[in-house]
Computed example of a mutant assay.
Amino acid sequence: MSSHPLSLIVEVTGKRQEAEDIVTFELADPHGRPLPAFGAGAHIDVRVSSPGQDDLIRQYSLCNHPEERDRYLIGVLRDPASRGGSEAMHEAIQEGDLLQISAPKNHFPLKPAGRTLLLAGGIGVTPILCMAERLAHTGADFAMHYCTRSPERTAFRERIAASGFAERVRFHFDDGAPEQKLDLQRLLATPEPDTRIYVCGPGGFIDAVLSTAKANGWPAERLHTEYFAGAVTDTSDDDSFEVRIASSGARYTVPADKTVHQVLAENGVDIMVSCEQGVCGTCLTRVLEGEPDHRDLFLEEHEHAANDQFTPCCSRAKSPVLVLDL
């Protein structure tokens, strides 16, 4: 994996089981110094190490109050389809350990609105909860809907119940009574003026919210999303193509079974990568010529249409050649 600007060393000062398969980690400066400030919706990159495996870089949203400077709090779901990151966090990382992390980044920031509607699916609650804390602190008008498989898999229930915004939160469980399940059609039936929607969770949950909102006339610019995993793409028809480096003129063939990033790394062309699924935007690269085949979930529709940047960790080419601004 390419180098990555993980500039902070933090100590794991707390590890807690929040719900079935969900653990939170409290991170603090080992010397008690204030940590860099962050806004609601921010995340950090974490270098995850486990015996016998290469180090991995994973992104975790910050879920504590955004005005806290003495700690970061992240929640980690043990994913049965884990590529090693969540499993290592659950099993290998303990209180007292030191972790290498990045300063907070925010691709999912809160924007001014008359009213805010927060929708969380599963572990997607982490940035949404941080947003709720911020909105409550500023006296903003908001409502939060939190969907999980069951109460046992619902992280932060006690924290929400004890908060000053508990009455604004509605829980929806897959195994609960039909009448308590989230009715998206009813919730999003009419676009509300000056209301913004923020949604985070599994891809299917996000897609359901977006498709319902758009079908009911909600403007795209008022729908804000953050995905935790890349899209599932049919790669059976993938073909090879060529990338050209603008600065050197070097040309490389990208075969059907490799990514642009992999081919460039093999040839000494360094691009910073992190999620390797087109979710985080770390590897975003300018395209000077050619048409990308966008497979990321980071760029918005109008940014895909511009075709002047792409994610080499997962996206490919529709044209025979892509000229990259490297």
Rank of each mutant, 00 (worst) to 15 (best):
D237F: 07
G290D: 04
E20M: 07
A155Y: 05
T259L: 04
L129V: 01
C313P: 03
T235L: 13
P312M: 05
F142D: 00
N106W: 07
L223K: 12
E276A: 05
L284S: 06
L73F: 07
A177R: 15
R47S: 05
G217C: 07
P193L: 03
E300L: 10
R157H: 12
E18W: 00
R83K: 15
G122M: 11
D194Q: 15
I123K: 01
S150M: 04
T148D: 10
L182F: 08
S3M: 15
G278W: 01
H294C: 08
H90C: 12
R71F: 11
H145R: 05
K105E: 13
T195F: 01
A231Q: 04
I271H: 15
L119A: 06
G122W: 04
T253C: 04
Q53L: 13
P292R: 06
A265T: 11
F142H: 07
P292G: 08
R47I: 03
T195G: 05
E158L: 13
P5A: 14
H294S: 01
L117F: 04
D194S: 05
E226K: 00
R295W: 01
G278Y: 03
T116D: 08
A81T: 11
P193R: 06
E158K: 15
K258P: 09
A155T: 03
G124C: 10
